[in-house]
Amino acid sequence: MSTGSYIRRFWQLYAMLLLPVSFFALFKYGPMYGVTIAFKDYNIFQGIWQSPWNGTETFREIFDMQTFKTALRNTFLLNFLDLAVSFPAPIILALMLNEVRQMRVKRVFQTVMYFPHFISWVIIGGLFLQIFATNSGIINQMLNHAGFQSIPFLSNKYWWLATYLVAGVWQSVGWGTIIYLAALTGINKELYEAAETDGAGRMKRMWHITLPGIRPTILMLLILAIGEMPRIGFERPFVLGNSMVSDFSEVLSTFVYKIGLQTGEFSIATAVGLFQSVIALVFLLGANTITRKFADQSIV
C-alpha cells in the first residue's frame, strides 16, 4: 500500500493529530527563534532580527556575575534536597496505603493527600505564613504560650530551608502517590498469596515483591527528576522566599524574573534559560544512560 493510499484510508486518525501537532508547532517550535536573543545585543525597539549580534559575550557576562553563581548553586542545592526528601516520600506513602485493606479509608486518605496538589503556591505561601510566621504564626504562638522562644522558620535561612522542603513534600506527595498506586495494581496478586503461603511477612512481601514490581516506575521518575535538576519552578521559591533568606531562596527562575522583567536585560534572561535547557538535557541523557547500563531500565 502506497503512502498516499494509506493516508486516504486512515485520514480520520491523521485529522485527529492535526490539533496537537499544530499546538506544538505554534507554541513550542515556533517561539524557538527567540533563542537567538541570547546571542544578540537585544534592543526591544529594534526587534530580534535587527538587533546586532554579540556572539557568546552574554554568556561570558552571566558567568562573571556573582548573583548568577549564587542562583545556580541554590538551584542545584534545593533540587538535590528535594530529590532526597520529596522523591522517596510518595513511594513510602504508596507502600503504606497499599497495606490498608479498608477501601473506604484508603480512598479518604488518597483524596486528602493529593488535594494540596491543586492548590496554588500563592495560597500555600499564605497558609505557611499564617502557620510559621515568627511573631504571628500559629506554631510560634503555641511555643510562646508554652514558655519557649519563637523559631524563625521564615527568617533564618536554615529553618527556611527545612520549611521549604516541608512545603514541597506536603504539596506533591499525594499526587506522586497516585502514580505508584497505579503501578502497584499491575503486580500479580498470586505472588503475594504464594509468598504468604511460604510464611513471608508483610515486610518481606513488600521488599521482595512490591518494590521490585514498581521498580521500573521508580527508575523512570528518577531519571526525569534528575533531568530537572538544573531547572526549578518559579512560584515556590518566590512565594516562600524573602530578603532575609536570599542566600538560599535566590534561584535561577527568580534570577531570570528579576534580570529580565525588572531590569529589562532580555539577552541575559534568554541566555540563562538556554543554559538551563542544555544542562537539563545533559543531566537527563546522563541519568538515562547510567540507569540503562546498571539497572537495564531507561525511558528511551
Rank of each mutant, 00 (worst) to 15 (best):
G286R: 14
V100N: 03
F128A: 03
I138P: 07
A287Y: 06
A271Q: 03
G260D: 02
P216L: 14
D82G: 15
Y158R: 13
S267P: 04
L72S: 09
L18K: 02
A25L: 15
Y192M: 01
T70F: 01
P152F: 10
M1R: 13
V105S: 14
I123A: 10
N144P: 07
F24V: 14
A225N: 13
W121C: 03
D82T: 08
A94Y: 11
W159C: 11
W207S: 04
L281A: 11
I44N: 07
S5E: 12
R202N: 01
G47V: 10
I62R: 07
L181A: 14
Q297M: 15
E190S: 08
G201W: 00
F148N: 13
D198K: 00
S120Y: 02
W160H: 05
V272N: 09
V282N: 02
I151Q: 03
F275T: 10
M206K: 12
I279P: 11
L78H: 11
Y158F: 12
L129Y: 08
I226D: 07
P88L: 10
F80Q: 09
I226N: 00
F27G: 13
L26Y: 14
F87K: 13
W11M: 15
I179C: 14
G260R: 04
A269N: 09
T163A: 07
I290S: 03
M32S: 05
E57N: 14
D64K: 13
F153T: 05
